[in-house]
Nucleic acid binder design. Sequence first.
DNA 1: GCCAACGTTGGC
DNA 2: GCCAACGTTGGC
Length: 161
Amino acid sequence: MMATVPAHWLLKSEPDVFGYADLVRVGTEPWNGVRNYLARNHLRAMKVGDRALFYHSNAKPTGIAGVAKIVRAAYTDDLQFDSESVYHDSRSDPQEPRWSMVDVAPLLAFPEVLTLAQVRELPEWESSPLTQKGTRLSVFPVTPLQFRAALKAAGVKLARK
DNA sequence: GCCAACGTTGGC
DNA sequence: GCCAACGTTGGC
C-alpha cells in the first residue's frame, strides 16, 4: 500500500485541564470528551502519523504550545457511556456510539508558546477557524502551509521521517 | 468577570 | 420545521 502524506490538524485544550506539558508527562493520551459533531468528524478523519498543533485555549498566553502526533486512529470514546463522567451522553447508542477519540503523543515542544497574536500575524492563517471571530471549533484541519508557517514562526523544525 | 458567538434543545 | 431560550466556548 502506498504511504499517504500525513495530514495536519489543530487540537485545542485548556492547559489548566490538560496542557502540552501533561502530554509530555503521560506520553500518550486519549483525546476524549469531544462533543461536537464537526470536531468529531475531524477526529474520525485522522490517521496514524498525522500531526496536530497543540493549542492552549483559556490560557496565559493562549497559543500553540507544540506538535503532537496521532498514534491511534478514531475509536469509541468510552466516557460517553460512563454515567459518572461529565462527558456522559445518555442518548448515545452502544451499538453505534456517537463520539470518538484518537490517541495522541508529543512530538515536538515549542520553545515558547506561539501566541494567538503571533499566529494572527501570519498571512497563511488569515482564513482558519482559529483566527475567525466567533469560531469555537476545537478540532480542525490545518493546511501544510499553515503548519509550516507556524513551525517557522516558532523557530522549530521537525526531523524528516 | 464580561460578553459575543455559536450549537443544541424543546415548545409549538 | 421554525425559532427562542439556554448553555458553552473562549478571547479579552
